[in-house]
């Protein structure tokens, strides 16, 4: 096994004097789908901000063996660590095609960009049909597809997907999860940050459970799904809701 693609150890971070993350350890190997689950306020988004270097943090933070601490957010992005942000954050008054092009803003290889276009349109045929439409006029599910597609246009090595299922119909969530499985087959590693534990566990290999700024459980999702604590706290709630 080669070195992990993303490696986090002993990571602490917070806002001002308020610590949010304490001693986080997490790793993602090449070709894996790893999920990070936890309820609202557990610190998932804070961890993502630390990873993308938009928030300062102490501890080890490495991507492909390279220390991220001295890098700017732009430089982290350039290494291939690409986020699909929570809430999609599309350019609403630009067309679907223009949104996708913005994902490839930093790329210079025209041939590679054309290939990425082809891949995104193959994964999401509806985006091809609506490529001349304003992104703001799409349905919620289509907007999320556009957001994932835009991130894929950046040729990610690690795709970090934040709260993809939020506000979407289950059938749309399933379709998006299917796409994440497909792109894993094409060499893209995925870190899936989710409140919907059922959805996340359905495609992930391994999972981390976060509570009040700490990782409290980790392991294969098949094992986590059997864990009594996890069942009570997350899957139980999910079944009830």
């Amino acid at each position: 096994m080669s070195a992990p693609l993303l490696e986090i150890a002993g990571l602490s971070a917070g806002y001002g004097a308020v610590p949010v993350l304490r001693d986080i350890a997490l790793k993602v190997d090449v070709g894996e789908i790893v999920t990070l689950v936890g309820s609202n306020g557990a610190g998932k988004t804070t961890l993502l901000r630390a990873i993308s270097r938009t928030l300062g943090a102490r501890g080890r933070l490495a991507f492909d063996g390279r220390d991220l601490a001295p890098l700017s957010p732009e430089a982290v992005f350039a290494l291939g660590l690409v986020q699909v942000p929570e809430g999609r954050q599309l350019f609403g008054r630009m067309t679907v095609e223009e949104n996708l092009l913005m994902g490839a803003y930093r790329r210079k290889d025209a041939a590679g960009v054309a290939q990425s276009f082809e891949r995104v349109y193959r994964l999401f045929p509806v985006l091809f049909e609506r490529r001349r439409q304003k992104a703001g006029s799409l349905s919620g599910g289509e907007q999320q597809m556009c957001a994932v597609g835009r991130a894929l246009m950046a040729a990610p090595r690690l795709l970090v997907v934040d709260e993809m299922s939020l506000g979407l119909a289950p059938v749309v969530v399933d379709q998006l999860l299917g796409v994440l499985s497909d792109i894993r087959g094409e060499g893209v590693t995925v870190l899936l940050v989710e409140q919907d534990v059922f959805a996340a566990f359905s495609i992930a290999d391994r999972g981390y459970v976060m509570e009040t700024g700490r990782i409290v459980r980790e392991g294969k999702v098949s094992e986590l799904a059997q864990d009594p604590e996890v069942r009570r706290a997350y899957l139980g709630v999910a079944e009830g809701g």
């Binding site: 957010p73 350039a78 350019f91 913005m102 803003y105 930093r106």
Partner: peptide, 17 residues
């Protein structure tokens, strides 16, 4: 495109470089 993208959503524009 980058000018319009920045006008519409600064956070996302920064996210993509």
């Amino acid at each position: 495109r980058a000018i319009r993208a920045t006008a519409q959503n600064l956070v996302a524009a920064r996210l993509y470089g």
